[in-house]
Design a protein around this nucleic acid. Structure first.
Lengths: 258, 258
DNA sequence: CTAGAACCTCCCGTCGCGGAGGGTTCAAGC
DNA sequence: GCTTGAACCCTCCGCGACGGGAGGTTCTAG
């Protein structure tokens, strides 16, 4: 049926490059790996691409735009295209990944754009705070999944700005009290500090959802605090060494409970 | 001011990898290229990362998430971060690119998703048409800029589905007439075929905007038709060889006018 | 006929790591 | 103190999708 094309226009590699928006070098590459060979060659060895080749190239381009690696593209095009189901499944997976990626990029750019705006408005003191916020975002990414971050954002929104501010104030008070105990040398199993840590956890719970998912988020956040408490607290108006001591102290209290 | 950290917790490379979500190998890489060296080494050569290093790593992660290449990140972090303007400009450019990319991905996935749905509904005959549509999308990408494609989409929407259908019908009529003339051997400078080509162009103009931008789009579309008319018309119910002849014929008519 | 554009092959470089290989060192249990 | 297994060290090779240059041949317009 669809035999070789024996007549019609031929394209040189340069013409094809211009027509497809690719570079000549890319076409050489496709030839090398066997993804798109020229249907013919002149006596002297120049590539002559046939209409079929052009058609194939557009398919390649289209699939590549979907993010398929060249090898997969070769596979898809190697089949006589009758196993539509395979291709559809493959594309579906690819699409999901692409959209997720696009969403992540979009959210990230929105956040950073917001940051930049706030810098413009001089409401932020300078590059230090900016970098600190970037660090926090990166840290959240390292410890929490996307869903968990969304959960937290939801809870924050539910509490509202004044709710968040109030929690911050309460937290500041707890920090002061715990620092006092740490400096005074109160032992980690003292009921008073245990009570303080319990209030600390209750405060954190305001930001977590209920159920198993919330429990996992809580555990992840606690790991994050344990590993990076000092870094986290650089955003805050307390000296770093005291925060380091605080992190260690809270950890000791927790361990004395377990 | 911010001298070297002489006391405090130290991290091994494995701990740092776990804390940051990167791999040990990646950290080796960062060390190799000088992006993040361990502040200290043990006598035996094991890396000891200091708190400063951890802090730097989170900055690296954050900037990398924005798509900056590692070298740029090193530059940004090399400056004492006082030239905030440079960084802001750099980030702004990066953000624009990222958002554009995200938008492209999103539009592409939407279109392909639509295609897949239509395949499911059996309203499309099969993989051939599916691939043909993908080819068209890729071809549009090669010849038209994003703005130009959006312009065309706008005009299509303005014409409405029935407007588009009517244009298709008229175009089919023109194709038939021109094919007749081509087969009958009517010379390319015959006033009758010139009139037909003029109507052809007028029809195309319905899809183009006014002004200089529209003019450029028109030119690009004409280039696309000249280079790929045969491929384009594979979507249409005429035999391919006749369309090839038609493309050549229309091109001759245009040249005889110039 | 000649200039210069286009084409050929071969090969090395990029970027951000992954993974293997082969040796050394650390930390915990006995 | 000794062993053992995990963690760490360094070095090298590889990928994917080309970019770019060297050094030579061929095509095409004037």
């Amino acid at each position: 049926m669809a035999g070789k094309e024996t007549a019609g226009r031929r394209w040189s590699i340069g013409e094809l490059a211009r027509a497809s928006g690719l570079t000549v070098r890319a076409l050489y590459h496709y030839d090398e790996i066997g993804l798109l060979r020229a249907g013919e060659r002149t006596a002297s060895g120049h590539r002559r691409y046939t209409g079929d080749d052009v058609r194939r190239l557009y398919r390649v381009r289209a699939l590549r735009a979907l993010g398929l690696p060249l090898e997969k593209i070769a596979e898809v095009l190697a089949d006589p295209a009758d196993d539509l189901d395979t291709m559809r499944a493959l594309l579906a997976v690819q699409l999901r990944d692409l959209e997720e990626q696009a969403g992540r990029i979009h959210r990230l750019t929105q956040e950073v754009r917001g940051l930049l705006c706030r810098i413009d408005e001089e409401s932020m003191p300078g590059p230090e705070q900016f970098m600190a916020t970037l660090e926090m975002m990166s840290m959240f990414d390292a410890y929490l999944t996307r869903e968990q971050q969304e959960q937290l954002a939801e809870r924050r929104a539910a509490l509202g700005p004044e709710g968040v501010e109030e929690a911050k104030l309460r937290w500041a008070g707890l920090v002061e009290e715990l620092l006092g105990h740490a400096q005074a040398g109160t032992p980690a199993d003292d009921p008073r500090v245990r009570a303080l840590v319990a209030r600390w956890d209750a405060l954190a719970d305001r930001f977590h959802a209920d159920g198993e998912a919330g429990e996992r988020t809580r555990a992840a956040a606690r790991r994050m605090w344990r590993d990076n408490g000092t870094e986290i607290s650089r955003n805050l108006p307390w000296p770093v060494d005291r925060m380091t001591a605080l992190v260690a102290y809270v950890e000791r209290v927790r361990r004395s409970e377990a």
